[in-house]
Simulated scan of single mutants.
Amino acid sequence: MFKSMGVPNEQIARWTGLLGLAWVFKALWSPFLELARSKKRLVVAFQLLGAAALAALALGLQLPAWFALAIAALAVVSLASSTHDIAADGLYIISLSARQQAMYAGWQGAFFNTGKFLSLGGLVILAGYLEGRIGVAPAWTVVFALMAAAMAGLGLYHGWALPGTLTVPPADASLRGVARTLVEVVKDFFAKDGIWMYIVFIVAFRLAEGQIQTIGPLFLRDARALGGLGLSTGEVGIVYGTAGTVAFLVGSIGGGYFTAWLGLRRALPFLILAMNLPNLVFCYLSAAQPASLTLIAAALSIEMFGYGFGFVGIILFIMQVVARGRFQTAHYALGTGFMQLGLVLSKMVSGDIQAALGYRSFFLWVLVCALPGLVLTRFLRFDDK
């Protein structure tokens, strides 16, 4: 949307990166969510809040200060979605065994990330179709209104469908008691054996991915004279929303079963290598600049498969290695907060790096950024009990 409405790459990367800060700091309010016995109610409430914020975004695009209003509405979406993530993962953890968590992590990751590719696929095709008929801003107003309606529908559906697994709230449910719990949660987290190595690995795991996921779609849209592929809004939706989405789902689900079969310790290096496939794909696309939409779609299908297959690794690493202990839900939130920190940092600087290097050199740089995560796997400790 921002690209279609003329926002420069640097601003797109910087502001969308900043919006991710809610996911970095979400663990600071995660202990307060432990007061709610029903994680299901929290999940539904924040889905409905997200729907309201998306509706506000749709309306804001029609006003003169549309960019500031869009960022404000998306900030509410970010806060709602990050808090929802804590509650949803908490419900996932307390409702499933360790083996079930591994088996269904691929499905969880698939649905988590399918939102990205739905927005880059079908909704972008619709936006591209509408842009030429009713204008850019009205087209995206329609798209975000549809997203708001879908989110509200999902919230109502989950109010009926989700399991009502209950948890026992803390003995001291006062605000002061929860604050003490937060301090205890943070101390317990940083007292874990090898935690600093885990944090460095988590941040490094997403450094390359964050840059690729931010600049990749902008590269597809930019003119060939500027080093891009010159695709239209609708064409980007086609290549991501067809074979790319299928490849991602297959990779994500396959990664979960692959890890359940091989075990996380042995599977992790393969999962990291799979996460490098998108880097290689964009290196090829930036060097060859193919004109065939079929060839571009095939290349992006390889990217999507590798991303889906490899993303399972970081989710299970945080869930089964980092989050173990007395405060599983809160520690999982802390772990995913550091995971998001790696993504935010890489997103925020990606636009400036790309502007300085150009697309071809930028994608080579991103390939190098993926190496530290692979090297660090040799220094990680796993408790196999």
Rank of each mutant, 00 (worst) to 15 (best):
K3W: 06
K3L: 02
M5W: 01
A13Q: 01
R14N: 07
A22N: 03
P31Q: 07
L33T: 09
L35M: 15
L35A: 15
S38H: 12
K39V: 09
K40H: 14
R41W: 14
L49C: 02
G50V: 00
A51F: 06
A53V: 00
A53S: 08
A56Q: 06
G60I: 03
L61Y: 02
Q62H: 13
P64Y: 13
W66G: 05
A68D: 11
L69I: 05
A73I: 13
V77S: 05
D85Y: 07
G90N: 13
I93T: 09
I93Q: 11
S95Q: 11
S97L: 08
Q101G: 11
Q101S: 10
A105I: 08
W107S: 09
G109A: 08
G109V: 12
G109Y: 07
T114N: 03
S119G: 15
L120C: 09
G122S: 10
L123V: 09
I125R: 11
I125G: 13
I125Y: 13
Y129P: 15
R133S: 11
V136I: 12
W140A: 01
T141M: 13
V143T: 06
F144W: 04
F144S: 02
A145V: 03
A152S: 04
G155D: 08
H158D: 14
A161F: 14
L162A: 13
L166T: 09
P169A: 14
D172W: 15
D172I: 14
L175V: 12
V178P: 02
T181G: 09
T181S: 09
D188I: 08
F190S: 07
F190K: 06
I195C: 01
W196R: 09
M197C: 12
Y198C: 14
V200E: 09
F201M: 10
F205R: 04
T214C: 06
T214A: 01
L218D: 01
R221V: 00
D222E: 04
D222H: 06
G227L: 05
S232T: 02
G234H: 07
E235Y: 12
V236Q: 03
V236G: 05
V239D: 04
T245H: 07
V246G: 09
V246K: 01
V250N: 08
S252R: 01
A260S: 11
A260F: 09
L262E: 11
G263W: 12
A267V: 10
L273N: 05
M275A: 11
N279A: 15
S286L: 04
A287R: 12
A288G: 10
A298H: 15
A298G: 15
I314A: 08
I318G: 00
G325N: 04
R326L: 15
F327Q: 00
Q328R: 15
Q328Y: 13
A330D: 14
H331T: 09
A333H: 06
M339G: 11
V344F: 08
L345A: 14
S346N: 08
A355L: 07
L357G: 01
G358A: 03
Y359S: 00
R360L: 05
L367K: 00
C369G: 04
P372G: 01
R378L: 10
R378C: 04
F379G: 08
L380F: 05
